[in-house]
Design a protein around this nucleic acid. Structure first.
Length: 842
RNA sequence: GGCGGCUUGGCGGAAUUGGUAGACGCGCUCGACUCAAAAUCGAGUUCUAACGAGUGUGGGUUCGAGUCCCACAGCCGCUACCA
């Protein structure tokens, strides 16, 4: 293959500029206490979701968000902001370890290699990061503070009265026992049914299960002793405090749905012939009179105790089937409802009716109380179940006219419900809750879907817990011992048993005083929960971030990343941030003020990029062929940042041609391949009013569009401007250099190179953003649109200040207009000054 | 099933408060340059021979609707028996 000739020598100047930015630390950002810090400057913190350094290197999705933030960062810098725009690596985690096992190398080695690759690729794109702030979550200096934050969480509890986290030392002072305190810590140990993956050798958080199953790993339910974080205490605040954030509504909604708040009541049903009661949660206490049976989750602890002798065999058999079923089978919607009667009965507290108790796998142990009252008349699932097993269906809600009450689940009017009869549903609910509370049969309750966060993993490549076990109790290690690093291990492969990998390192686990180290490790989310804080002060050895740096930089003004983190990373990070806020370690309630999700880039075939489809575009190839500026510009020109859009190699060629046109405005190629300054480029004021108008319109639009993150339209305006320069006889230097400044955030290498070649001094990226002259935008003649009955019939060039009478006279004088109003009477005239006139005639 | 997003030429996409639909780019056509081609520069390009029609479909509001309202359809994403 012959080397294609480059239309401009990007392959020479791009690496040269990158080297210069590196050497001169052009994008170094001084913070409080640093040399060169100017506290008078406004700050702007623009953040990318840092990459997980996979073995595959960057894909084209990374530069999409990264270019967008780079443009914003450079633009804000030119507008006088002190811009924090850092980059780092989310380098712990399961995928890194899987990759290491696959390649037979230690994860520390592969991670270092992968980071090296990512760094090289990021630098080849010319991003204006402050590389002095680069961090990796695996750095011991970073691990130390991740563990320190964990200890803050561990040493705290959630105070219901003040609705915030407080140190447990306050409880100690109040005389709480060790045991009582352990029961309220925000980080606690619990034996709980968890998602265990034998082939990954670890448990997974609820949120992660789907992802790994999709990758072909098996996941099963299993009770294990695990570390949990009490995120549920923050459920309400995690919902409420979304309000002040400038996030896409869709993402807020996703978080709210994930947290899943529902209002209702708990109701206690007495079990006939037993002391025990069954507590259920319902969002429809108004339908209590319609409860004709009860259902317990198959795993419900009461089942063993209350099942009657004659039903025992069948119940046991059913429970066994449920236990072996993966939740995939269980979640299969097309499946029939199944369940068995356990022989026991309960008493409906509101009418004394004896109703049968069943178990069925459509009731989940993990939500509410793991038991329901079934109201088949007004719940789809109960209706289906009752129909199948021929259980009674009693109407208690009356829908509007012509609607069948069977299976009617909306709000209506209470019927067959004694003291609720005639009340609309919302009032009936309130009245029933009042009745339950007055009679001690239940109370109003708010229930969340959100579970506590399963925080421990059994794998090697993660932060060890800074915890030791003494006499069967957990205890924090002294802060001075941080970071606590994992011991070097030859064999870190999963064994298939739930025993954590670190337990193999006996010397590390067993301490001289007989205590044992915790052998679980933290999940990958731990590092990404606070990296945006560490960037503010990455070298600090005294604190996770200095008070001054935190105060100056927080919170993040703009955070750009993919939607895949809508409920995981973004929820966890908010939770940690709130704990740190409550404890006085950070000054803002929320970490990310504005969030933008970049849209997925699809392959050329309109399908998701994947190796198996063979439609993956490698950014390295694009840079080699067209240059980094062309890649950056293309990704911004494809369409709106937030939209899903397909890749088109022809489109890259298009923007590459545009960049070549910009180059040729200023530089002529000689016969020998060298470049000389174009004679069209003159050091004189702009005499061409039209050219000047286009330039100033471009200054205005590009600035406004960057603020709106509408990069594709900014680029199209710069194309218009370039076409005007190309066609002009004389290109005034002042206007051209202003144009280069506008293009600089998008195509930093090319613009700096042109500027230097035409003798410009200094770097464009360190200059001020140009202002536009409003006077230059004014046109003297405007094309007025003349409509007849709303349809365009004529265009008339008239003075820009033409009034209604003037335009009307001109319109009536037009032959085209006359044709359409002939024989008609003008009933009305709509006039939009400077724009159009509509003649309404019939 | 639920929730969210999307639907504009051959393609990616533009269109302030409702006011010229199709900016800009790709592709294509023609011309200039060239022995020729590429590259480049210039002209054209929604459909239709034309009258006209036209922003997924059907209705509505309005002097005027891609934009607002109602109903429906299709595609994509997330979620899934949450009581």
């Amino acid at each position: 293959m012959s080397e294609t000739r480059k239309p401009f020598p990007f392959h020479e100047f791009e690496p040269a500029w990158q080297a210069r930015w590196d050497a001169e630390k052009t994008f170094r950002t001084p913070g409080p206490g640093d040399e060169g810090f100017d506290p008078a400057k406004p700050k702007y913190y623009v953040l990318d979701m840092f990459p997980y350094p996979s073995g595959a290197g960057l894909h084209v999705g990374h530069p999409e968000g990264y270019t967008a933030t780079d443009i914003i960062g450079r633009y804000k810098r030119m507008n006088g902001f002190n811009v924090l725009h850092p980059m780092g690596y989310d380098s712990f985690g399961l995928p890194a370890e899987q990759y290491a096992i696959k390649t037979g190398q230690h994860p520390a080695v592969t991670t270092a290699e992968n980071i090296e690759t990512f760094r090289r690729q990021l630098k080849a794109l010319g991003f204006g990061y402050d590389w002095d702030r680069e961090i990796a979550t695996t750095d011991p200096g970073y691990v130390r503070w991740t563990q320190w934050i964990f200890l803050q969480i561990y040493q705290s509890y959630f105070c219901g009265e003040t609705n915030r986290a407080r140190p447990v030392s306050e409880l100690e002072a109040k005389g709480w026992t060790r045991e009582e305190i352990d029961n309220v810590r925000l980080a606690y140990v619990a034996d709980t049914p968890v998602w265990w993956s034998p082939d990954l050798g670890t448990v997974l958080a609820n949120e992660e299960v789907e992802e790994w199953k999709a990758k072909g790993h098996t996941v099963e339910r299993r009770p294990l002793r695990q570390w949990m974080l009490r995120i549920t205490k923050y459920a309400q605040r995690l919902i409420d405090e979304l309000d002040g954030l400038d996030w896409p509504e869709g993402i807020k909604l996703l978080q709210k749905n994930w947290i899943g708040r529902s209002e209702g009541a708990t109701v206690r049903f007495q079990i006939s012939n037993f002391e025990s009661q069954i507590e259920v949660f319902t969002t429809r206490p108004d339908t209590l009179f319609g409860a004709t049976y009860m259902v317990l989750a198959p795993e419900h602890p009461l089942v063993e105790r209350i099942t009657t002798e004659d039903r025992m065999a069948e119940v046991e058999a059913y429970r066994k089937t449920c236990a072996t079923k993966s939740d995939l089978d269980r979640g299969d919607l097309n499946k029939d409802k199944t369940g068995v009667f356990i022989g026991a009965h309960a008493v409906n507290p509101v009418n004394g009716a004896e109703i049968p108790i069943w178990i069925a796998d459509y009731v989940m142990m993990g939500y509410g109380t793991g038991a329901i009252m079934a109201v088949p008349a007004h719940d789809e699932r109960d209706f289906e179940f009752a129909t199948k097993f021929e259980l009674p269906i009693v109407q208690v809600v009356q829908p509007g006219e012509d609607v069948d009450w069977r299976g009617f689940t909306d709000y209506g009017t209470a019927v067959n419900s004694d003291f609720l009869d005639g009340l609309p549903t919302s009032e009936a609910k309130a009245k029933m809750i009042g009745w339950l509370e007055a009679n001690g049969k239940g109370k109003g309750r708010i229930q969340y879907k959100l579970r506590d966060w399963l925080f421990s993993r059994q794998r090697y490549w993660g932060e060890p817990f800074p915890i030791v076990w003494k006499d069967g109790r957990h205890e924090a290690i002294p802060e001075g011992e941080l970071p606590l690093l994992a011991p070097p291990l030859e064999d870190y492969k999963p064994s298939g048993s739930p025993e954590p990998i670190l337990s193999k390192a006996k010397d590390w686990v067993e301490l001289p005083d007989g205590s044992l180290r915790e052998t679980n490790t933290m999940p990958q989310w731990a590092g990404s929960c606070w990296y945006y804080l560490r960037y503010c002060d990455p070298m600090n050895e005294e604190r996770f971030v200095s008070k001054e740096a935190e105060k100056y930089w927080q919170n993040v003004n703009l955070y750009v990343g993919g939607t895949e983190h809508a409920v995981l990373h973004l929820l966890y990070a908010r939770f940690w941030h709130k704990v740190l806020f409550d404890l006085g370690h950070v000054s803002t309630r929320e970490p990310f003020q504005k969030l933008v999700n970049q849209g997925l880039i699809l392959g050329e075939d309109g399908q998701k990029m994947s190796k198996s489809r063979g439609n993956v575009v490698n950014p390295d190839d694009v840079i080699r062929e067209y240059g980094a500026d062309a890649l950056r510009l293309y990704e911004m020109f494809m369409g709106p940042l937030e939209q899903v859009k397909p890749w088109q190699m022809k489109g890259v060629e298009g923007v590459s041609r545009f960049l070549a046109r910009v180059w040729r405005v200023a530089l002529d190629e000689g016969a020998d391949g060298s470049y000389a300054i174009s004679p069209k480029l003159r050091d004189e004021p702009c005499a061409d009013a039209e050219l000047r108008r286009v330039v100033h319109e471009t200054i205005k639009k590009v600035g406004e569009d960057i603020e709106k993150l509408s990069f594709n339209t900014a680029i199209s305006q710069m194309m218009i401007c370039t076409n005007a320069f190309t066609q002009a006889q004389v290109v005034p230097r002042g206007e051209f250099v202003d144009f280069l400044k506008l293009l600089n955030p998008f195509a930093p290498h090319l613009t700096e190179e042109i500027h230097a070649r035409v003798g410009g001094e200094g770097m464009l990226s360190e200059m001020a953003w140009p202002d536009y002259d409003p006077a230059a935008l004014v046109r003297n003649e405007i094309e007025f649109i003349i409509q007849v009955n709303g349809k365009l019939r004529e265009r008339l060039k008239l003075g820009r200040d033409s009034g209604e009478e003037e335009v009307k006279a001109a319109a009536l004088a037009s032959a085209k207009v006359a044709e359409f109003i002939e024989g008609k009477t003008i009933r009305k005239i709509v006039f939009v000054p400077g724009k159009l006139m509509n003649l309404v005639a019939n």
